[in-house]
Design a binder for these strands. Structure first.
Lengths: 167, 167
DNA sequence: TATTATTAAATTGTGTACAACTTATTTTTT
DNA sequence: AAAAAATAAGTTGTACACAATTTAATAATA
């Protein structure tokens, strides 16, 4: 919590130690995520996006149009959060929301021309990180891998058929 | 986003590469923090806390009573978020909020007897992580260190006189 | 085929999270 | 000491985040 950064182990950790460390991990994870989002806020505001909207747009730019359901699986958000976010993106003119004819339960999220164009403008957003990241490239890579491994673990039971069936 | 986990570098990364990786880092950080908080939700509910309230209580248990200001610095929250959280903790009977006589601007947050007792009950909370963490102890340590280093970097300009002057 | 179960979105209610602003109190300047 | 600046909480408004429920459509089954 805040300080007490050094952890030194000379013996094999038992289950209790592991859980304790896991618990200690929660705070910097929570705080770090929050602070990074804060860094992004201003540059994103300039191009008319919130952080969550930015995440949505990044997925659409990378993987193309998809259903709200699929989108939610990719970014770990349920319809309770996603529906209002998508409605705002629609109001901003970056996406269209369209019921799927073959199965009216699904809503397909479609990038508009403006939504596609926004990708270029968004290229400048990561510059906000400059002067705020004090990790080396190797450290960033390591952090990236560890976070993804942790995420994978959390989703062991959550079957996300990742690339397949593009609803 | 979601996949594309492998990053392989054979040459020295330029600034653009670093920013790009930094940007890629944002999503797993955001998603991982969210998922971990989700894991904690149920066990915390049993002892009558939300995640943010748990963070507050952990700081108070570890460092003792302190002003709202000090608390906010430690957990990266401003009064806009913290004041309502603390009012709820007060209503739940875990803390008292008391103006400081010497400087009426400050509010001191004080653990009640029930607030102190809650620490014992909270010991079972980390067990929620069992079966959800798929990182080795070494990996967790590494992740912990990297997150704290990143946090330190973000706060280079944010002077938190961490342990000192206990307001 | 009629009934039941499942599913994707949408809705509702609670709880953060934060920028911008207000209020009350203390410090600093003049 | 009076005026101005600074500071800690509190307030307001917007935007998630999520559990629980509802609605509408499709699939499964008796």
């Amino acid at each position: 919590m805040g300080t007490g950064k050094e952890i030194i182990m000379t013996e094999l950790p038992n289950k209790s130690e592991v859980l304790k460390l896991g618990n200690q991990l929660c705070f910097p994870l929570y705080a770090c995520a929050k602070e990074v989002i804060k860094i992004y806020r201003k540059p994103l505001e300039k191009i008319g996006l919130t952080y969550t909207q930015y995440i949505v747009m990044m997925v659409l730019w990378k993987f193309g149009n998809m259903s709200e359901k699929k989108l939610g699986e990719k970014i770990y958000l349920d319809s309770g959060t996603l529906t209002p976010v998508l409605k705002k993106l629609e109001k901003s003119g970056f996406v269209k929301r369209q019921r799927v004819a073959e199965d009216e339960r699904f809503v397909k999220i479609i990038l508009t021309d403006n939504g596609v164009k926004l990708k270029q403008k968004a290229l400048t957003v990561p510059q906000a990180l400059e002067g705020n990241i004090y990790l080396s490239y190797d450290e960033m890579t390591k952090l990236y891998d560890l976070l993804n491994k942790a995420l994978e673990g959390i989703n062991k039971r959550r079957k996300v058929n990742d690339e397949s069936n593009d609803n």
